[in-house]
Design a protein around this nucleic acid. Structure first.
Lengths: 214, 214
DNA sequence: TAGATTGTTAATCGATTAACAATC
DNA sequence: TAGATTGTTAATCGATTAACAATC
């Protein structure tokens, strides 16, 4: 099971992997067997050399003039992305965003199964959203143990985000996906991935400004 | 009104700006007047030199031993982020995610006002979500003209994303914020900002893997 | 074979980090 | 003054892009 460790993939390359994966899968439906980096680049609006570099990280090699074996390539990319095995998650904060994430069916394809929700609101507790039951924050510990929860998703308001992170950490969760616009303080062995719409919006605004200047 | 153009801020620095802005604003409540980059770095888990570099982009200068004037700094950062002036947006696709974004109150602080929704579903048309009316896709043109819509937000399913983008483009919208996991094809003068949860999840999974190896 | 495509090494580019004199 | 903090120039690091021989 212990696979030889290829060197870690740079984050920018990693971020492009899902797009490759979806694209490559769409090709299987068309009966494609070999695919060249030139073709991929062309269809995804990238340059061939970047695709070539990115595919290097799969550890596979392609055949000159022919390209890569599509099936193996997809498998390798899925392995890199971890889409081949499921992680269980719990989402804390079943407001609008929480509901949206709970209801989103696509995560299952991305190796993520959000198995339950958590909310302080007693009216929500015991009810279901998209077939997932909502629990009280007190129950995090039990939930985590019983369901091998690896990821805690935080969609509570800013004010409660740190407290919720603390609860997750106390329950033994080592990875947090944080949608609240705060820097969470956690022990060194806990990974926090911040999702920040404000940042993206900032990038968009700047690009709009620059576009207008042309 | 045409301000002298400071050189464009690198994207990574820009992405850090919202965090600075929120943090700095929280300081005003405490009556802080001058703030040093050392203190900011300390509170935001960054290194002082990075903060110093980032603050350089504001065009302001700080006073050795004292720091930066908080009020001016906030103003400068808000200017960079464009949070000082509103852009109107319309959101296409009032499913779970669409509803979540429509209902999120925070965007107003980020200079974004989502003034209406668009959905193919006739049952949704004419109704309201979070006080915003839902229209039919046919009405995009009129909506855009009447409300000076600068940004089209796409939260429709993958299959309809390109078609919706085309409608926005046809209506004259020059900026799209795309939450559908596809590469949209648009004219060169249209800016597309892709929001990709799959990418973030990929980064999170890799970091979890690496953490476990330690 | 000819020519497209790969694999690999080197060059470029840009962001981060370091170093240190200037300043309050 | 002494020492913290700034502003600025240089060094480092890593990703992207270029170049080109190897290969099918």
């Amino acid at each position: 099971m212990t696979q030889i460790d290829r060197k870690a993939i740079p984050v920018p390359a990693l971020r492009r992997m899902p797009a490759y994966c979806n694209y490559l899968k769409s090709l299987t439906l068309k009966g494609v067997v070999y695919i060249s980096t030139t073709a991929v680049a062309n269809d995804l609006n990238l340059i061939p050399i970047q695709v070539r570099k990115d595919f290097e990280y799969t550890g596979l090699s392609g055949r000159p003039k022919i390209g890569y074996n599509l099936e193996m390539l997809i498998e390798a990319v899925e392995y890199i992305l971890g889409w081949n095995k499921m992680s269980n998650a719990v989402i804390a904060g079943v407001g609008n965003l929480g509901k949206a994430l709970l209801s989103y069916q696509g995560f299952k394809n991305y190796g993520l199964d959000i198995i339950a929700g958590i909310d302080e609101d007693k009216k929500k507790q015991g009810k279901e959203v998209a077939g997932r039951k909502i629990f009280s924050p007190d129950q995090i510990g039990a939930l985590v143990k019983e369901n091998k929860i690896g990821i805690g998703i935080i969609t509570v308001p800013v004010e409660s985000a740190q407290a919720m992170a603390d609860l997750f950490v106390k329950a033994g969760v080592k990875a947090l996906w944080n949608f609240a616009p705060v820097m969470l303080i956690v022990p060194a062995d806990v990974v926090v991935q911040n999702e920040n719409l404000a940042s993206s919006l900032a990038v968009l605004s700047q690009r709009i400004k620059q576009q207008k200047e042309k």
